Simulated assay, not measured.
Amino acid sequence: METDSPTIPKRTLTDILFIFFLRLVAVSCFWFGLQYWAMLVGYSLVGAGRFDLLSLPWKVASTSLAVLFPVASLGLWLTVSWGPVIWVLAAGGQILMYGLLPQIFGPNHLIILLHVIVAVIYWIFRLSLWLERRRQRRQVSVDLP
């Protein structure tokens, strides 16, 4: 329902694109979570990634990420403030795995690059939304008698 109430802010194009971006990241997080769960229960990797067959570092990392990614997905989809925080934990976990500990987990430069790109786009959106709201506040203060 559309209203002309001054107390209900209208969504700008930046707001809509930011929500679309967050939901796109949410879908990818859900996919990552499904991949980790499929690995842990033996559905993927021909059963070689089952939890009972993994080394201790892989057990810790994969179970943590199997929980963090779906939770991040939910938070990002709902556009709540804790969604990006959980995503940072999950993405940071993967960056640590594949960037700082490649001797244990193997290198995966594509995952690291994708997480960095998502983080940069997120901060560009946050900056543009902050500038937009700042401009709107100035406009309102100028319009007031």
Rank of each mutant, 00 (worst) to 15 (best):
F21C: 04
V25G: 07
V142I: 14
L22C: 15
A119D: 02
T14Y: 08
E2F: 15
M39T: 07
I8W: 08
S44D: 12
L54Y: 03
Q136F: 03
W31S: 09
L78E: 10
S28P: 00
W82K: 12
Q139T: 05
G93W: 03
R134T: 06
S44P: 00
G75L: 04
R50D: 07
L144D: 06
S55E: 11
R23P: 06
V27D: 00
I95F: 00
S64D: 09
M39W: 09
V116D: 05
L96K: 06
Q35D: 09
R126T: 09
M39F: 06
L127N: 01
P70V: 10
H109S: 12
Q139G: 05
L54Q: 15
I19G: 00
T3G: 11
F21V: 05
I86F: 14
L114R: 10
L110W: 14
P9F: 10
T12I: 00
V118Y: 13
D52L: 07
G93P: 00
T79I: 05
V67K: 00
Y36F: 13
G99C: 05
I117W: 08
L45K: 11
V67Y: 05
L13W: 11
V67E: 03
S81P: 01
M39R: 11
A26F: 10
F105Q: 06
V85H: 01
V60Y: 07
I19H: 07
V140I: 15
G33M: 07
H115R: 02
V85A: 14
P145G: 01
I121K: 04
I19W: 13
Y43Q: 07
V85C: 01
V140D: 12
T3P: 03
G93D: 02
L127R: 06
A38H: 06
I8T: 15
A26E: 09
V60A: 14
L65H: 12
A38M: 07
Y98R: 02
L114I: 08
T7H: 10
Y98N: 06
S141E: 15
A91V: 04
V27Q: 03
S81E: 08
A61C: 05
L13F: 11
I19L: 07
G106L: 12
A66F: 13
R23L: 03
L17N: 12
W87F: 15
Q139R: 13
V25F: 08
W31L: 14
V85T: 14
C29Q: 12
P70A: 08
V27A: 15
T3N: 15
T63S: 09
F21K: 04
M1H: 04
Y98M: 01
V27E: 01
P9V: 01
I111H: 08
L96E: 00
V88R: 02
I95T: 06
G49T: 04
D52R: 01
F125Y: 13
P107H: 11
